[in-house]
Structure formats: C-alpha cells, structure tokens
Simulated scan of single mutants.
Amino acid sequence: MVDRPRDLPRDLATRMAQRSRPADGFLRETFVLPRPAARAKAKEFLEAWPKAAYMSSVESWRELPGDTIEFTMRRLPSAD
C-alpha cells in the first residue's frame, strides 16, 4: 500500500467548486497575488477584455494571510 499525502481542505474545496461550475459559457481565470499586484492584474484584465464587449468582471475574491488576494475573473470567450 502506497501512502498518499492527505489533501488539504482547501484542495478539496477547490476541486468541489470546479465540479459545480455552471456551463454558462464564461471563461474563468483565478489568481493569487499580493494586494497591489492583484489590483493591477484586475485592471489589466478589464482593459484587455472590456466589460461592454466581453461581460468581464471579478466573479469572486477573498483575502488570504499576508495581505494576499485570491480572485477569479470571468469573461465571455468572444465579443459579438
């Protein structure tokens, strides 16, 4: 029998969340960055994929220890 490292609760939660994602057509990207870099990345994302054309937005975010932000950006794959 091979010993496997135990999954962390966060790993389990991430896998469960990915399974329950709706098939709504949006593309999602998740980032984990220090607060200033997170702000810059969100701004860069919204400039690259304008909300008016791609319905881009910050879907979710949370603060992690050490002033780090985990956030998920979403957008449509193409503008019509």
Rank of each mutant, 00 (worst) to 15 (best):
E44M: 09
R19P: 01
W61V: 05
A13F: 01
S20V: 15
R21K: 12
F71L: 08
L46E: 05
L8E: 13
E44A: 15
P50I: 00
R28Y: 10
K41R: 15
R39A: 09
A38Q: 03
M73E: 01
E47F: 02
P9L: 01
A53W: 06
L27P: 00
P34F: 04
P65W: 00
R75E: 03
R21E: 15
P5M: 03
A17E: 12
V58A: 06
P36S: 10
F31Y: 14
V2W: 03
V58H: 04
L12T: 14
T30I: 07
S57Q: 14
K41Q: 15
R62G: 12
S57C: 14
K51H: 09
D24T: 03
G66K: 07
D80K: 11
D11S: 12
R10A: 14
P34S: 12
M16E: 13
Y54W: 04
A40P: 03
D67M: 09
A42N: 01
D67N: 15
E29C: 06
L27V: 13
R19F: 10
G25N: 04
S20E: 14
F26A: 01
A37Y: 04
A40Y: 05
K41M: 13
R74G: 06
D80N: 07
M16L: 15
M1V: 07
M1G: 13
S20M: 13
M73R: 00
F26P: 06
K43L: 12
R39T: 11
A13L: 11
P5D: 01
A23V: 08
T30M: 07
L33K: 10
R39F: 06
D24R: 07
D11R: 07
F45W: 04
I69E: 00
G66H: 06
S56Y: 04
I69F: 06
E70G: 06
M55K: 11
A40L: 11
R21P: 00
D3P: 05
R4G: 01
A23D: 15
E70K: 12
T30H: 03
Y54P: 08
P5W: 05
F45V: 05
A40V: 05
T68Q: 09
A79V: 00
R75W: 01
R6C: 07
A38Y: 00
R6T: 10
A23I: 01
F45T: 02
M73T: 02
A53Y: 07
V58C: 13
S57T: 10
R19S: 09
S60K: 10
L27H: 08
W49G: 01
P5K: 14
F31E: 05
L46R: 12
A79L: 02
A13M: 08
P36H: 08
L27Q: 14
V32I: 12
F26E: 02
P65Y: 04
E29H: 08
S56K: 00
